[in-house]
Design a protein around this nucleic acid. Structure first.
Lengths: 217, 217
DNA sequence: AAATAAAATTAGTCTTGCCTAATTTTATTT
DNA sequence: AAATAAAATTAGGCAAGACTAATTTTATTT
């Protein structure tokens, strides 16, 4: 098994690899973890030695089959714990990420499977991210954002891209959660702000950045 | 807050301080953690600087009020997680200690309290150890062992002193758990072995060490 | 009380995982 | 293509937390 740090690197690389066609560079990993690129180079060497990743200057960093498996397991644990914290312990969705970030590292052969069963095999976590099954398979993540849809369309919130507390608290204030109905009333050409109607209520204007962080179906 | 290592030292010192009247020496701590005494001396300095312990050559190591508080909180978390693992996830009592050992370090202001509520405020953990309340108070631990009672007496298993997997698996094989009725039929003078009857069934002979690790009421 | 044994401490080392500063390599402009 | 900017890498260092070996202090025997 890996150290805590190694696991966090694997997770970061996995997350970056979700943006298909984007090369995973040391700098990108460094930014993602808030570390110095020099530290990343060290860790790339270590993870390469352990055969968890492969690094090629041209292609960037890629997870090996084993690295992929390990990363997915960490993500699985993270998302299952998030469901537990929300559903069983009554946390709000803006409070669970950081705690799950610690819980995900607890490693026991049957823990994730037992937790999954206890939670009745949830498909998605409270932020709308699909939960990998024990075999590593999972539903396709949502990918269409509120900023992508056509003016006049109505959709439902399926997931959030940003799981940070400030963003989620803002959503709470706007009364937006998973399943909320949103209509895109107008796109402001000047700065791509979005005028939306939440659950059929009065119009609200939100930024492009905001819209990009809400995934819909 | 403390590092993982610091927390483990606090916990070890707390555990040792449960044997009243016994001086807590660097060597004792080292043995308890499987570390080298030299490492313990380093950590004693660090914890002293942080005012979590006080060290006096004569009196040995003692927890400060803050250190005591922190240690009890770790124990509280450990025992609550053990209840969770057994009752909610269906683990057996010989499997939970090591997992709880990791879970206990997860630090969030409300996590332990929420977990306690979710578990319906258990008083004892699956090994019979009392669970500290949020204010640090807890029931008195059981202290009379099977080796302490008089021949001919019948009692109930209240707790186990040894929570290691081998011991608990042995108990499983003997069909002994918390609440099991045991009668002490005879003490063998030669080596203090105990002849016992479990739940009124045929006699079994167990060692003195075994008897000392079973606490009864 | 001296001799011996045990415990505590110090000194120095190692690994992990991070850092900064300097340098080299690769990309992007002009 | 040369100049410049950005990214990657190397070198050297630091703190935490462990270790071993050597030394000093304290306890226990004889």
């Amino acid at each position: 098994m890996q150290t805590l740090s190694e696991q966090n690197y694997l997770k970061a690389i996995y997350r970056l690899s979700q943006d298909e066609g984007v090369k995973i560079t040391p700098t990108a990993i460094a930014e993602s973890l808030g570390n110095n690129p020099a530290s990343v180079v060290d860790m790339i060497r270590k993870l390469t030695d352990k055969q968890l990743i492969a690094y090629d200057k041209k292609a960037g960093v890629r997870l090996s089959p084993q690295g992929q498996k390990d990363a997915v397991l960490i993500v699985r644990r993270h998302r299952l714990w998030e469901v537990f914290l929300l559903e069983k312990l009554g946390y709000h969705w803006d409070e669970i990420h950081d705690i799950a970030e610690e819980l995900e590292h607890i490693n026991d052969t049957t823990l994730a499977d037992r937790l999954e069963k206890f939670l009745d095999f949830p498909e998605y976590d409270p932020h709308g991210d699909p939960i990998p099954k024990a075999n590593g398979k999972m539903a396709k993540p949502y990918s269409v954002s509120l900023a992508d849809i056509k003016t006049g369309t109505t959709c439902k919130v399926a997931a959030v891209r940003d799981t940070s507390s400030p963003f989620l608290q803002y959503l709470l204030k706007l009364d937006i959660g998973i399943g909320t109905t949103i209509s895109l009333v107008e796109k402001i050409g000047y700065d791509n702000s979005l005028v939306i109607s939440i659950n059929g209520k009065d119009n609200t204007t939100v930024s492009q950045k905001f819209g990009e962080n809400i995934l819909v179906e």
